[in-house]
Amino acid sequence: MGERHEKLSRIDRIVNRCMWGISIISGICLVITAVLCTCDALLSKFFSVSIPNGTEWVTYLNIPVVFFAMAYIQIDRGHTTVDLLCSKFPQKVQKVIKVVGDVLGTVVCLFSGYCAMRLTADKFSTMTKSSSASNAFVIWPFVLIIAIGFVVVGAAFAWCIVRDILKNDAENAEEKEEVTP
Rank of each mutant, 00 (worst) to 15 (best):
H5L: 15
E6C: 12
K7I: 15
S9Y: 09
S9G: 14
R10N: 14
I11R: 07
I11A: 09
R13I: 11
N16A: 13
R17K: 14
C18E: 05
W20N: 07
I22A: 05
S23P: 07
I28N: 02
C29H: 09
C29M: 13
L30Y: 02
A34K: 00
A34I: 13
V35N: 00
L36W: 08
C37M: 13
C37I: 12
T38L: 15
A41C: 03
L42F: 12
L42H: 05
L43W: 05
S44N: 15
S50L: 05
I51N: 00
I51P: 01
P52G: 08
V58I: 13
Y60P: 01
P64Y: 05
P64N: 10
V66I: 14
A69L: 07
Y72I: 01
I73S: 07
I73H: 00
Q74T: 07
D76N: 13
D76L: 10
D83G: 04
L84G: 04
L84V: 12
L85C: 06
C86G: 11
K88L: 11
K88Y: 12
F89L: 15
P90L: 10
Q91H: 12
Q91G: 09
K92H: 14
V93F: 06
Q94D: 08
Q94L: 02
Q94N: 06
K95H: 14
V96M: 09
V96A: 09
V96R: 10
I97P: 06
I97L: 09
V100M: 09
D102L: 15
V103C: 08
V103R: 03
V103W: 04
G105H: 04
V107M: 12
C109V: 07
L110R: 01
F111V: 15
F111I: 13
S112A: 15
S112D: 09
G113F: 03
C115Y: 07
A116N: 08
M117A: 11
M117K: 09
A121M: 11
D122M: 10
T126L: 08
T126Q: 07
T128S: 08
K129Q: 13
S131T: 06
S131D: 04
S132I: 09
A133K: 08
S134K: 11
F137K: 01
F137W: 05
V138M: 06
V138W: 02
I139C: 03
P141C: 06
F142G: 00
I145D: 02
I146N: 07
G149N: 02
G149Q: 02
V151G: 10
V152W: 01
V152H: 01
V153C: 13
G154L: 10
F157H: 08
A158H: 02
V162H: 04
D164T: 09
D164Q: 14
L166T: 03
L166S: 04
N168L: 14
N172T: 15
E174R: 06
E175Y: 11
E177G: 02
E178S: 12
E178L: 15
V179A: 12
T180F: 14
